[in-house]
């Protein structure tokens, strides 16, 4: 296999990595917000419910969560939903791994939403009470205070920790290969197994590196853009 062929083969895998990355970010980031509000709820049962969820999701290895989501329906309901989806998509559309990817996306989205929620919570709680009170005294509604005063300050504060999570996320996508999803490292292992080529495995590192470089530039720009004010 030529270098170009290997690159293209790995790129097919990296597309799956990027898909997991993109969907997790797109769904997990908004989902983190209700979880954050839940764990800040003044109503104690709700608060503790969310705290327990966050504890469990952050307390168990993500790889294990992928296994649980993938295998549990089969064990409990005797219905391997993700296997069925796999088969359906393969037969109908000739698409591989659809069900497995779905299981991975669910695990990733929930897991990252919980991590994001803690970042949001930290950001929201770090805004001084005085900002809310200034809004109240000026006759603003609660939602105006949040949208017009609090939100942007929170965003400014959470960009650095969010950047960290986002960079971790792209590397975590490699965990998908624990249920045989053909992300980039799985592809490289495939080459190792079938063609006795080891170097593509190391080569995958370059894909991550380049993407993280790109992310760093974009996130850095965002951080800079928000640095016009100091709170």
């Amino acid at each position: 296999m030529s270098f170009l062929e290997v690159t293209s083969f790995l790129l097919d895998g990296f597309k799956i990595s990027l898909l997991i990355f993109g969907v997790t970010l797109l769904l997990g980031a908004p989902l983190g917000l209700p979880i954050a509000f839940g764990s800040m709820s003044k109503f104690k049962p709700v608060k503790y419910l969310f705290k327990v969820i966050v504890w469990i999701v952050r307390g168990i290895p993500l790889m294990l969560q992928i296994f649980i989501i993938y295998y549990l329906p089969g064990l409990v309901f005797n219905f391997q939903i993700f296997g069925q989806v796999d088969r359906f998509f393969l037969i109908e559309y000739g698409v591989m791994d659809a069900g497995r990817i779905m299981a991975v996306l669910i695990a990733f989205t929930v897991n990252y939403a919980c991590y994001f929620s803690e970042i949001y919570r930290g950001g929201i709680e770090s805004i001084s009470k005085g900002q809310y009170e200034a809004g109240i005294v000026l006759g603003m509604t609660k939602s105006q205070i949040f949208k017009k005063i609090i939100l942007k300050q929170v965003v400014q504060r959470i960009v650095p920790p969010m950047s960290n999570e986002i960079i971790t996320l792209i590397k975590d996508t490699a965990l998908a290969n624990c249920i045989m999803v053909c992300e980039v490292i799985k592809q490289a292992k495939e080459l190792a197994a079938t063609k006795a080529m080891i170097w593509p495995l190391f080569y995958t590192g370059l894909f991550y590196l380049l993407f993280v470089g790109l992310l760093t530039i974009i996130l850095g720009k965002g951080e800079k853009k928000l640095s016009y004010f100091r709170s």
């Binding site: 005294v137 006759g139 400014q156 004010f229 100091r230 709170s231």
Partner: peptide
């Protein structure tokens, strides 16, 4: 509450301006 709030104004010791 807001309707009444507009009848009074408060200047805080440490300003609480909106930084953004």
């Amino acid at each position: 509450r807001r309707r009444r709030q507009l009848l009074v104004g408060l200047v805080f010791q440490d300003f609480h301006l909106f930084p953004q």
